[in-house]
């Protein structure tokens, strides 16, 4: 007889201890109690009467949120003493250390968690412009090289331009999070520089409903992002024809990404 263990997660109430405003688009909510999740794992955040959405955790007790739609607008209105419900830890996170990390836009969120845990040696971090960057906090824990599309801060151009053979040769493991096309460029460049694809970890995102592997809506070429990911190694991602191409909409219909 085998052992059959199957437990779902009950959500728990978390009270906000403080809010850090990084820029007009991004805030970090710090909670009174800490999470169980490791870097790269995620949480389903429920605001009663508003909805529920998946978020990466940015540390053992915080979530960094980018304003995107109705849910995050409501989230942005919350402050000290307000509460949300959180289901965590969900999914599989990053599982190596001493990374060269590459982040684009709001893809910085799970990378912040890695930085907090001291697992990132160098961070390449790009965004649209200076106003979309989180500045003056990550530098305390790691070396950060910035890039902006419009040149308003750091290197003028794409964050993937900062990936050089010289830099890559110093590292064994690589963590990437950002828009899918950016992740593909970055990972392909690393492979070109001789990095084995299994040493590159990517954090993927898909529309989610249950967040616990039941409904299947977040599947990418058959892998359920909520339980098989969100962090996948690049050799696994290379077996997913839907990567950078398709996602499922709320109805389950496959749509172009």
């Amino acid at each position: 007889m085998r052992l059959w263990v199957l437990i779902l997660l009950a959500k728990k109430r978390f009270v906000i201890k403080g809010v850090v405003e990084h820029n007009p688009y991004m805030k970090t909510f710090v909670f009174e109690e800490s999470f169980k999740a490791n870097p790269g794992q995620f949480a389903m955040v429920f605001i009663p009467g508003v909805g529920e959405k998946p978020f990466s955790l940015s540390s053992g007790e915080s979530i960094t949120v980018e304003k995107r739609g109705h849910f995050t607008e409501k989230f942005f209105e919350m402050g000290k003493g307000d509460f949300v419900y959180i289901r965590e830890p969900l999914g599989i996170g990053f599982y190596r250390m001493n990374y060269l990390a590459i982040a684009g836009g709001s893809g910085i969120a799970p990378i912040i968690h890695l930085v907090h845990d001291g697992d990132v040696k160098t961070l390449l971090y790009g965004a649209k412009d200076k106003e979309h960057l989180i500045l003056n906090s990550l530098e305390q824990r790691t070396e950060v090289r910035y890039a902006t599309d419009d040149g308003s801060y750091g290197y003028p151009g794409f964050v993937t331009d900062l990936i050089t053979k010289e830099l890559v040769d110093e590292y064994e493991f690589f963590a990437i999070c950002g828009p899918e096309v950016m992740m593909k460029h970055a990972a392909d460049k690393l492979v070109e520089f001789g990095v084995p694809s299994e040493n590159i970890e990517l954090s993927l995102e898909r529309y989610m409903k249950c967040g616990e592997g039941l409904c299947g809506i977040c599947e990418i070429s058959g892998r359920r992002v909520c339980v098989d990911g969100p962090v996948f190694t690049y050799d696994e991602v290379l077996k997913m024809p839907d990567f950078t191409k398709f996602k499922r909409a709320k109805s389950g219909k496959k749509v172009v990404l």
């Binding site: 959500k11 909805g51 959405k53 249950c210 039941l214």
Partner: peptide
């Protein structure tokens, strides 16, 4: 969302038949 709620004992869902 939320379409599921687990209270520690029983799972509830209100997917309501999404369909392509």
């Amino acid at each position: 969302n939320p379409v599921i709620h687990f209270n520690g004992s029983v799972l509830m869902n209100s997917m309501a038949l999404p369909s392509m």
